[in-house]
């Protein structure tokens, strides 16, 4: 459903992504593994249209995305849960959800979706009138995912969903993502935490200094010497 071909991205004169090709199929769970500054966030922001590539193409459901504004990609179903959650801090939990569900495809079912999110994440229901900035880190990540789900994603992109969270909460978050994927949602996520992302995903890409250096089945990548040494610390 998402096909990226030879994508290059620059910040000013400095090229940071060098000809990246990657794909996510319908219903797949794909991980993008790499250390800090490898170019993961740059790639994900480019997919969402916040950065423009200098070369290469992005297609989603067969449609070229190049040059399309971020909100139009949301309308097509590419929803990103950004790094460090980026909630609307002084808006309530409920308002964050309402904004998430405001695109044309989602807004018709918005009230039902809000209720469904409160059922899936009861703590958000309890805190619905609280400002997002008053939530704990784990609650904030749940809200960030719920806000993304409100937008009725066809492809859910998550940038470092485990960042700054306690291991137990990371486990919960990934359980939620695996469950959503099992219901048919396509997922693409980036992680420094190679262990859990390789455990949860079916396929993975390893990105290093703006290039894809390895790709394949997550389980076999997790057993490869290179990944074990560089990313799993074994």
């Amino acid at each position: 459903m998402l096909e990226i071909d030879s994508l290059s991205v620059s910040y000013g004169p400095v090229e940071v992504l060098h000809g990246i090709s990657l794909s996510v199929g319908e219903g797949e769970f794909v991980a993008l593994v790499g250390s800090n500054n490898a170019g993961k966030s740059t790639l994900l922001l480019t997919i969402s249209g916040l950065l423009n590539p200098t070369k290469g193409t992005i297609r989603f459901l067969g449609k070229p995305m190049n040059g399309l504004a971020p909100h139009r990609r949301v309308a097509d179903g590419i929803i990103q849960v950004p790094e460090r959650k980026r909630l609307f801090p002084r808006m309530t939990v409920e308002e964050n959800l309402l904004v998430g569900g405001s695109n044309a495809r989602a807004i018709g079912e918005r009230p039902q979706m809000v209720q469904r999110m409160y059922e899936a994440f009861p703590v958000l229901g309890q805190r619905r009138k609280q400002e997002a900035q008053t939530l704990s880190g784990g609650e904030q990540q749940m809200l960030a995912i719920a806000r993304g789900m409100m937008a009725k994603p066809r492809l859910l992109i998550l940038d470092e969903p485990s960042l700054g969270l306690a291991p137990r909460i990371v486990g919960d978050i990934y359980k939620t993502l695996v469950a959503l994927n099992a219901e048919g949602l396509s997922v693409l996520l980036s992680e420094q935490n190679a262990r859990i992302s390789l455990q949860s995903s079916r396929r993975a890409y390893v990105i290093q200094e703006g290039r894809i250096v390895l790709s394949g089945n997550s389980a076999s990548l997790a057993n490869s010497d290179e990944v074990r040494q560089s990313y799993l610390g074994l």
Partner: peptide, 12 residues
């Protein structure tokens, strides 16, 4: 509060 997040949530 966060124009980048707003854009990612589909706001023009």
């Amino acid at each position: 509060q966060d124009p980048v997040a707003a854009a990612l949530m589909g706001i023009d």
